[in-house]
Computed example of a mutant assay.
Amino acid sequence: MSIISKFSSHKFLFLILTGVLVSFIAFGMLFRASSQGDSADTYPKGFRGGACTIETENLIIGYSGYYLPADFESPENTLRSPYVPVQCGNVPEPATLNISIDLLYPESARDYLLAQRLVKVDAIDNNQKEQKILSISAQQHPSGVITQAFKLNEPGQYILYLEGKNIKNTNIQVKIPIKVGSDWKDHFKKLFSTFLRKD
């Protein structure tokens, strides 16, 4: 093999490696992901062991969920659970959603009076309007776990608000995003799920 052909093959490999590196950077910028799969509003690192976390100044929660498709019909004598796990509030289709919220920090959060409010977010004339779907009055959660089930009949963006006051009477609001339905970004994320963070 001549020196020129060796140089050409090394140059070709360098171009391929450069292309791969540029692709990783482009996808990271597109989905605002780092190499560790974290995002700024989640803690720690957004997705751990089937649960996602959200951090605010006064409260850190973990949340996970399972959904049951709206058209599901339970077969007789089934041994498997029909519920499908949800990753960080992404529900692929209208469904019944069971969500579990863990009050992670501080421990005194179990004594907070926390209400729940589910809204659907609609974009009207470049403005976001919230349509209330469900409201649950404030109460304490001594177990540190809040469970709730609700039906999401339409594709779109929803927010489950956790609102109340801490023991210092400071207002608390945590927004749990829930997206129903898939778009082109979701298909790319699924295709490149090894390299991208979970929302």
Rank of each mutant, 00 (worst) to 15 (best):
E107W: 00
A51H: 08
N127T: 05
E57M: 02
G37D: 04
S135L: 07
L113M: 06
L68S: 11
I25L: 09
S135E: 11
I54F: 02
Y112G: 04
Y43W: 08
P142M: 00
E57G: 01
D122Y: 07
D111H: 01
V86Q: 11
D41F: 07
L59E: 04
C88E: 09
K45Y: 07
L13C: 02
Q139F: 14
G144V: 02
Y66C: 10
K132T: 13
L79K: 15
Y67Q: 13
Q140T: 12
A138T: 10
D111F: 02
T96Y: 15
T42V: 00
R32E: 06
F14A: 08
L21F: 03
G62K: 00
K45D: 07
Q36F: 13
Y112D: 04
V22L: 12
A51R: 10
I133Y: 08
G46E: 06
M29E: 08
T42Q: 00
G37S: 09
D125R: 09
N127L: 07
G19L: 05
R48E: 15
G28K: 02
D125Q: 09
Q87W: 13
V121N: 02
S137E: 13
L17V: 00
L15A: 08
G89N: 03
T53F: 05
F12M: 11
L113E: 10
V86S: 12
S64M: 11
R32F: 06
A51S: 10
R117P: 05
E76W: 11
G50W: 12
Q139G: 15
P94T: 04
L114G: 09
L59R: 06
K132L: 12
A40T: 11
E73F: 13
T53H: 03
R110I: 08
G28A: 03
L59K: 07
I101E: 00
D71A: 06
V86C: 14
K120L: 03
V119A: 04
I99C: 01
Q87V: 15
Y112T: 03
T78N: 13
Q116A: 11
T78M: 15
K120S: 03
L104F: 01
L118T: 09
G19Y: 09
L113W: 05
C52V: 01
T56F: 03
P94M: 06
F72P: 11
A95Y: 10
F14G: 04
P142G: 00
A40W: 09
D71V: 02
P94S: 06
S64V: 06
L21N: 00
G144N: 02
G28W: 07
S137I: 14
A40E: 13
P75D: 13
K120A: 03
E107K: 00
F47V: 06
G50L: 12
L68H: 10
V119E: 01
G144C: 04
N127P: 04
L79F: 15
F14W: 02
E55T: 06
P75N: 12
R48D: 11
E76Q: 15
D71L: 03
A138F: 13
S34A: 10
D111K: 05
D38I: 08
R110T: 10
Q116S: 12
N58L: 08
A109W: 00
T18K: 08
L134D: 08
V22H: 09
L134V: 04
A95V: 10
D111Y: 03
E76V: 14
V119F: 03
G50C: 10
V20I: 11
G19V: 05
Y43R: 05
